[in-house]
Nucleic acid binder design. Sequence first.
RNA 1: GGCCCUAUCGUCUAAGGGUUAGGACACGGCCCUCUCAAGGCCGCGAUACGGGUUCGAAUCCCGUUGGGGCUACCA
Length: 538
Amino acid sequence: MRGFFVFHTLKSITMTFRSWKGRMSISPTIRVRFAPSPTGYLHVGGLRTALYNYLFARKNNGTFVLRIEDTDRTRYVEGAVENLLKTLVWAGLEYDEGPVQDAGYKMQDSGFRLQVSGGRVSSNYQGVVEVGEYGPYIQSERLEIYKEHIHQLIEKKKAYYCFCTQERLEQLREAQQKEKLQTKYDKHCLNLSQSEIEENLEAKIPYVVRLNVEGNQTVVTDDVIRGRVEFDSNLIDDQVLVKSDGYPTYHFANVVDDHLMKITHVIRGEEWLPSTPKHALLYDAFEWEKPVFAHLPLLLNPDKSKLSKRQGDVAVEDYRSKGFLNEALVNFVALLGWNPGTEQELFSMEELVQQFSLERVHQAGAVFNLEKLNWLNFEHLRKKSDSEVLQMLKEQLAESRFKNKQFSDEYLLQVIEAMRPRMSFVKDIIEQSSYFFELPASYEEEGVKKRWKEETPSQLNRLIEEFSSLVNPTKEQYEQALHKAAESLGIGNGKLIHAVRLAVSGVSGGPGLYDMLFILGREEVIRRIETAIEKIKV
RNA sequence: GGCCCUAUCGUCUAAGGGUUAGGACACGGCCCUCUCAAGGCCGCGAUACGGGUUCGAAUCCCGUUGGGGCUACCA
C-alpha cells in the first residue's frame, strides 16, 4: 500500500515539475520494457526505442525487460526472434529479464551478465530460454493469462462478445464513410442477451471480444514528453481485444503484460500515442494503476515520412554488415531525439547512461541522416586500440579476395597505423589501400597524366640505384636516398615522390610516401617501380 | 475526411521572456603538406506565417499553413 502511494505521488511530481530534471533519486524500482514484434529484423527505430528504455533503466537502477509481442500469427517470420536477440546482444543492450538464446549466444563475449541457467525453456521457440520471475516473456506463451483476464472484463461488462461478420463490419464502415462519419463499431453485439450469447458460443460462431467504451467522457493521458493529452471517448472505437483466433490484440496483451510485469514506465514510439486512450481505459477497467507514458518522436526518412524500407536501410543488421561499429550506431541513434544540453557529441554507452533523461527527449521527429553516422563511425573507430582494429581487419581480410594470402600481425599493424586518419571503416583499409595486399592492378589515369612524364622512367631508374644500395632502410633513409637521387638529377623531390607513389600504389593519394615504402619493404618497392616503368606508357 | 502529435541553419540540435540565436555533421575557403586524409582557423547557413500578451517573444496564448502519425480481428 505504501509502495503504491509513494509511486503515485512521485509520478505526479514528475509530471508537474518537469524542470526538476531527474532530481528524483528516491523511487520504487523502475521497470521498463522493450516489446518488439518479431517481423524479421530489428528496425533502427526499434533500436532507439530499446536504447532509451535501456538507458532509462540503467540510469535509474531499474530493470530492463525484453518481451516478444508475437500475437499476430499471420506475420510470423522464421528466425525473427532469434535474430532479434542476436542483434540486441550486438548493440550491447543488455536486458535483465526476457528470452535469451540458449547457450547464452556468446553472452559472455559481449559482456552480458544475464544468466541463462535456471531459465524456463521457451515452448514456442527452439533454443530460447526465458529468464526472470515475471515470465513467460513471449506473448504467444501467455494465452491462458489473457483468457483469464478477458473473462474478468466481460464479467464487469467492460468488454463484450461480438459475433459480427467481416461483411457486416465492412458494410458498416462503408456506410459511415459515405456519410462522412467516423468509422467505428456500432455496439450492435452489446445488445445481445445472455441467452443469445450462449447460443452463439455453443454454435461455435466465430467471435471477437471488444472493449466497451463509454461515450461522453474525456480520457486524459499524461505523457512525460508531450504533457497532458486529451481524447473524446465518443471518438474511441470499441477496440477488438481478443481476435477470432483466440489471440489477444496488441492493445490488450500489452496492458495485461505491462501490469503483470510491473512495468512502471512505458517508453515507446509516437505511433502509439493515438491508441493510448484505449490502453488507459483498459487500465481503468481493470482498476489498475497506469504506468507513466513517454511517446518518443518518430525517426523519419529524408522526405520526413516515417522511416521505412525502400528509402534506405532500416535494419540494424544492414548497418552492422556495412561495417558500422555498434558504438557508432548507438551514439547516433541516441542523438536522434535526445541530447544532454551540452556540446558533447561523442558518447560511450556509459556516458549515455550517466547523462540520459527522458525529460530531455524532443517532441519533433528526426530525420535519419547517414552523414553524421559516418563521422561518428570514424570517431569511434579511432578510439579503438590497434589490437582491436587488427582483429577486425583480420576478420575482414578473411572474407575478402585476399583470404588466401598471409600477412603478419606486425605488417598489418603498420598498415593500420598508416591508414588510421584516412578510414571511417575498417574495410576502407582493404578497399582504399589494396596496394598493401597486392600489386597495383592498374595505374590511375589522371595521376599518370599529371605525374608521369617522358623522363620519369630514367629518373626512377636512378632512384632504384639509390634504393638498391640501402640495407634494411628506415623511413629516414628512404627519404635521404630519394633526396640524393633528386639532387643528382637536378630535379625537385616532388617529381620523384609523386612518380614513386604512383608506381608503388597505383593511385595518387594515401599515407606518407616514406611510410608506404617502409611498410612495403625495399625489395617490393624496387620490384613495383620496375613493373611500373614497364607497364606505364605515356 | 476525423482525431492526435509537431514546427530553430540542408540535417541533428542548444537557447524555458532580455544572447551578435550557440554547437555538431555536411558544404566552401585558408593554413599545414610529397599526395589523399587527419588536424587547426575562417566562412556559408535557421526561429514557417499572422495575430495577440509583454517594456521586451525563438521562447507564453490563439489562429493559419506545412509536416507527420493513427484511424484493422497489424504491431
